[in-house]
Nucleic acid binder design. Structure first.
Length: 506
RNA sequence: GCCGAGUUCGUCUAGUCGGCCUAGGACGCAAGGUUUUCAUCCUUGAAAUCAGGGGUUCGAAUCCCCUACUCGGUACCA
């Protein structure tokens, strides 16, 4: 590459950032970083009716959490600002006018009602109304009205839009980095509105103008934009600008069925579709986020990177830096990828194992704080070291290791039934005494002593040890028994033994 | 309807210019091992006739054509 690329991620602040959008941003980021380029954040808020309070702040916070840093854009600044389209409003009109002056566009005065009527009419004949070369001469616009009338309407403040005027019967070629050459004939396209009656540009105009002004070299976006790519190349052509290179990414699909992954699927199947939890200001509804669900940001990034892209090797665990090095547009797949909760869980488990107890401590201390548990950090670190291999999510910690901080309030009935027999309480008291025999607890010595006693008296080992386990943990699960006792201390173990005896044998 | 894109194990995918593919890996699943328990972990296994049908070729998952299906677009939304 002879020039350093400039790419942008350009979300609309119409709600929380969808996980598919995160992946699009990630691919842009990886591409930019790999080529020592610039990653820009632009907010596309040209539709004032869909603006949602807090969405912009959400987007910025989400990328902070994920560790994807923008080099330029909203919240950062840069020499091509402003980066929010609503703040660029005055920029667009002259470009729309230039297009009209050059014969690439025209003013249209048709009311929404008139267009709706046309559509209905066509529908009745089982056709679709299209505002194009075949119909534009029968509509109310600057192509059909006398020049003076157009002037008059414009001057009097009549509502108007600017529509693109496709040349007739022309093949438009879009070169896509992922899909190759896509060709479509202009007769099939409708004269898209470029400039709305509220004085704002539509996505198409704003996007092209801004990408040009901001010197964007590569447009990496979702596949849903492929059908409007021909319009975009025509627009670059009409302005006489060099078009950026396009890459249209495959979609992220729901785990079951084939549709596009949506918020509903997440709620239904129990996984987040948003990076961060989102509280909708209008409906008051809360949607879960990866962060709040106990995912590590590195795991989310890694999982997303592999959903639609593959390095061609058998490596699956990648740090961000490794992704930057390994990434390539050519290896992005063409078909949509289904999100898999199991795979996401696996990635997160792998990343938890990669973390030290110290790394994990902030997550765990937060959980303990929420439970109002007072703790000693070095003790927590030991528990994390012992328990982290059992965690898929940091949020699993309490369920897996809560007994280190709180004596069991109840005992698993099934385990109890299987392990607790006549005389078990008596045996536990004998073991309890042996555990507390040394002035300072000696794990190895206690272990040997207890095992020897069990053998000598021909006790059922599984039964005795598991009932002790149930006393400590609350169920027949958990790590090595004597390690737990060592961590918990014999006094606490003594209390738990007495507690289970009084509860079970009363 | 029309236009566009896509189609390899249940899922994510490998598969450079056709031969090394009796199609490889990972997740998940099954069995076994480790563990006094549960989880982790280890080993092994089942799992795609490469959407279907025609070609081209000595030879095709890989090239061409047709069909089917899926998804996307078809707004003064992005």
């Amino acid at each position: 590459m002879n020039m350093k690329p400039r790419v942008r991620f350009a979300p609309s602040p119409t709600g929380p950032l969808h996980i598919g959008g995160v992946r699009t941003a990630l691919y842009n980021y990886l591409f930019a970083k790999q080529h020592d380029g610039t990653f820009v954040l632009r907010i596309e808020d040209t539709d004032q009716t869909r603006f949602v309070e807090g969405a912009e702040a959400y987007i910025i916070e989400a990328f902070q959490w994920l560790g994807l840093k923008f080099d330029e854009g909203v919240g950062i600044g840069g020499e091509f600002g402003p980066y929010k389209q609503s703040e660029r409003k005055p920029i667009y009109k002259p470009y729309a006018e230039q297009l009209v002056a050059d014969g690439w566009a025209y003013y249209a005065f048709d009311t929404p009602e008139a267009l709706e009527a046309k559509r209905k009419e066509a529908e009745a004949q089982k056709k679709t109304f299209q505002y194009d070369a075949s119909t534009r001469l029968s509509m109310v616009n600057s192509l059909t009205l006398p020049a003076e009338e157009v002037e008059r309407r414009l001057a009097s403040g009549d509502h108007f839009v600017v529509r693109f005027k496709y040349p007739e019967n022309t093949d438009i070629h879009v070169h896509d980095l992922i899909r190759g050459e896509v060709v479509i004939n202009s007769n099939l396209l409708d004269d898209k509105v470029l400039y709305k009656s509220d004085g704002m540009p539509t996505y198409h105009l704003a996007n092209i103008v801004d990408d040009h002004l901001m010197q964007i070299t590569h447009v990496i976006r979702g596949e849903e934009w492929l059908p409007s790519a021909p319009l975009h190349v025509m627009l670059y052509n009409a302005f006489g600008w060099e078009a950026p290179l396009f890459a249209h990414l495959p979609l992220l699909l729901k785990p079951d069925g084939n549709g596009k992954l949506s918020k509903r699927d997440g709620d239904r199947l129990g996984f987040p579709v948003f990076p961060l939890q989102w509280n909708d200001p209008k409906s008051g509804e809360t949607s879960s986020g990866y962060r709040e669900s106990g995912y590590l940001p590195e795991a989310v990034v890694n999982m997303l990177a592999l959903l639609g892209w593959n390095p061609g090797t058998e490596q699956e665990i990648f740090s961000l830096d490794e992704l930057v090095k390994a990434f390539s547009l050519e290896k992005i797949s063409k078909s949509g990828a289904k999100f898999s909760l199991d795979k996401a869980k696996w990635f997160n488990h792998e990343y938890i194992q990669l973390k030290s107890a110290e790394d994990l401590f902030p997550y765990i201390s937060k959980i303990l704080d929420e439970k109002s548990i007072s703790y000693n950090k070095s003790f927590v670190l030991k528990v994390i070291d012992l328990m982290k291999e059992r965690l898929n999510f940091v949020n699993d910690f309490w369920e897996q290791a809560g007994f280190f901080f709180q004596a069991p309030a109840e005992y698993n009935a099934q385990d109890l039934k299987k392990r607790w027999k006549e005389g078990t309480g008596e045996k536990l008291r004998i073991i309890d005494d042996m555990l507390r025999q040394d002035p300072v607890f000696d794990q190895q010595a206690a272990h040997d002593r207890v095992m020897e006693h069990i053998k000598a008296n021909e006790w059922n080992m599984g039964q005795v040890l598991n009932s002790l386990r149930i006393a400590i943990v609350g169920a027949a699960k958990g790590p090595e028994l004597f390690t737990m006792i060592s961590l918990l201390g014999t006094a606490e173990v003594h209390n738990r033994i007495e507690a289970i005896i009084s509860k079970v044998e009363s």
